[in-house]
Design a protein around this nucleic acid. Sequence first.
DNA 1: CTCGGCATCCTAT
DNA 2: CTAACGATAGGATGCCGAG
Length: 412
Amino acid sequence: MDRLIFHVDVNSAFLSWEAVKRIKQGLPDLREIPSCVGGDPKKRTGIVVAKSIPAKKYGVKTGEPVAMALRKCPELVCVPSDFELYVKCSRAFKDICASYAPAMESFSIDEVFLDMSGTRLIYPDPEATAREIKDKIHRELGFTVNIGISVNKLLAKMASDFEKPDKVHTLFPEEIPVKMWPLPVRELLSLGASSEKKLLEAGIRTIGDLAHKSQAEIQRLLGEKTGCQLWQYANGIDDSPVKSQKDEAKGFSVETTFEEDIVSMEQALPILLSQCDVVAARMRREGKKCTCVAVSFRTLDFKNRSHQCRLENATDVTDEIYANIRRLFRESWKGQPLRLLGVALTGLTEEEYTQMSLFEDAGERERRKKMDEALDSIRQKYGNDKITRASIMNVSSRIGRKAKAQMKNEKE
DNA sequence: CTCGGCATCCTAT
DNA sequence: CTAACGATAGGATGCCGAG
């Protein structure tokens, strides 16, 4: 039996949500002027995260440095991002979507898939239903969405990407030759710059070109798995289900780009400690422990390196994680100036601590665990998971000199 | 030969 | 002129060594 799938996508999500907020404050509508959400316009750093349609007409692209966007469009209005607002807007948007569908998959902060299969009696006309959903969102929340309709997630998502904003499109299998095959290969879902290059070199320019090659040839060009999937996508094939509950996280990571290059251990180690602290706190909040930790860094020539190790026992203790990260970093960093540092925790489990390793001091571990708990409760109190040991020490008048001294002691 | 581990690459929002 | 000026996540790939 054919399924019926909707893909709902907020138009220029972060920018639309900023625009709605600002209209309520009596400010001009960002969607009607060249504008973007992105890096600090004063510091001339950071990148464009979302742009208005007028900004797009100047050639401003998502992901490009704000400084470059300003050269293309000097009157571009840049606003900083406000993630808390986006989470609220996202929730309101998804609540409306969910009220129409037997099953909804949250695909990202601003996208959902709705499985509308078997709703024929309640909603005899899918396009009319989609228009109703989009108009309700617009009326009640003040921003527009695109909705794509088809028989699977891939085609629905491709359809929602057609003309914007505030539009409903279908892309049923019989429409593929006319609506999808003429598009450049790069527009196919999950076909990025690298695969595009390989395909162009082989003379494959459109999604139709890709669809009409043999699957074996595409796999030779792009690799076994990737080639198989992209060939199937080009032919409109996708059996993946709409997943109403999201998968368990597979890892947690944090990485930071610095304005000043990192050139010494003295600079790097406190940063890594603070990153371990932040990312381990996030992991603890989900009740997970990790069995693998990794440090990564980026040199000035934009080369990335990473170094990881497996742990004997799963842990969520900041200091245990940091001790490993510190060792990994010392092992891999040759002293080149760095623009970015990061920490990742993977191999997650929910197991309790197993038997302690032979030389491990259980009492010591318990002590460190207690300290993590104390810091986590401070974080909760201030509602900010960015609070780190370093930053808490800087406002230590609030928690007393003794705690400060203890933490300082813990650092090394 | 297969598998796990690792480093790196690719893709997405 | 080039590419890149983010953060986070998940998956694929290529290589290596163990069994």
